[in-house]
Amino acid sequence: MRVLSALLVGVLFGLGLTISEMINPAKIIAFLDVAGSWDPSLLVVMASALAVSFVGYRIVLARRAPLFGAAFQLPTKTTIDRPLIVGSALFGVGWGLAGLCPGPAISAAALGKGEIYVFLIALIAGMLLKDGLAPKRA
């Protein structure tokens, strides 16, 4: 059930990205280009997503456990540290260069455009560069 629900939620998430055109790098760059012909659509996407998730999380997290699991798994770290800021800054630069973040890049891969695959291969390389390929020694 966990796998089936993740598949359906993935489809829903992807439809959200597709309908809002967030899978289109040109649309993302038009939002980030505040000194050009600025397209504020992404701001509406964020506001709408936050309105739904803010209310929805409050209802869901008031329950004891998820439907298909023993407990809710939430991040426990609360300190703003160097890796958080440096990592987010690097991510932001990459987001601006390509006009893609991870979710939209994966959805856009379905549309068969070569540039998207170049981005995705580099994205996976970047992740492996940080996380490592071989098992970590204890």
Binding site: M1, R2, S5, A6, L8, V9, G10, L12, F13, L15, G16, L17, T18, I19, S20, E21, M22, V44, V45, M46, A47, S48, A49, L50, A51, V52, S53, G56, Y57, I59, V60, L61, R63, A65, P66, L67, F68, G69, A70, A71, F72, Q73
Partner: peptide, 17 residues
């Protein structure tokens, strides 16, 4: 689209935590 993204986030928490 944003609403669907938010709904998906809430559902993943409600179903899989």
């Amino acid at each position: 689209g944003g609403g669907l993204i938010g709904a998906a986030a809430v559902l993943l928490m409600a179903l899989n935590g």
